[in-house]
Design a protein around this nucleic acid. Sequence first.
DNA 1: AATGCAATCAACCGCCCTGAC
DNA 2: AGTCAGGGCGGTTGATTGCAT
Length: 246
Amino acid sequence: MRKPCCDKEGTNKGAWSKQEDQKLIDYIQLHGEGCWRSLPKAAGLHRCGKSCRLRWINYLRPDIKRGNFDQDEEDLIIKLHALLGNRWSLIAGRLPGRTDNEIKNYWNSHIRRKLTNMGIDPNNHKLYQTFPLPNKPPPHSEPSFDSMNQHQTLLPSNKPSFRVDDDDGDDRSSDDTHHSCLLETSSASHQLNLDLTIAFPADSSSTTTLFTLAEEDNNKDKNMPKPSTSENVHVDESTPTLLLFQ
DNA sequence: AATGCAATCAACCGCCCTGAC
DNA sequence: AGTCAGGGCGGTTGATTGCAT
């Protein structure tokens, strides 16, 4: 039986106070990161070590970039998500100053809905099927592309007439399909402008193709869950995957 | 002004991986 | 080889905020 990561009794939970933040900052500046389990006691914090780690990594680190995501970042997230799926830490690794938690939240609150409204399934980055459902009107009025957002770099040239599945929110059952767009070639996919010659927001020297990123991450990321057969991100030149990224 | 609802996001939870022993 | 602790990750929750009625 696994021991809990910390003693639930006597530990604070919920929002961090300024004093707690300062204690954590002071301690880490003095002793550096690491040893999270013992850190709270040493720093005089009544917090779980994991909570301290999260607080530091996501909010207190000096190199955290706060504020809204710009369009380049958003485009990059979408493209990386198409390639990597919900591997937020990997995606975050390509966005300097952004954390996995922040990107995950941004994805779930902004991008997911935006793609859905554009007629793109956020889970697999494919256009929704366009055949109409008999006797079933669209769940709500046709989304207005103009009202959605200013930028439409992913926009297909023609918007779909119907959406089969609204799927706004429940993605739990579709994990297996994260990379399905990488594994098949549909005419719809070809309409997506997934040009990779994008400008990286912070580090232009890292301008490279996602093809390269995928290989690199596959090689270096030992933590990456073993992909199921349908989830394999491995880039194989024989697959149609690259058609999306050429 | 009050209320209800939706959106946002900080934080927690539980699982998994890795390395040390 | 097996066990355990530490750390990392993705999914989910819940408090807060903003907007519509």
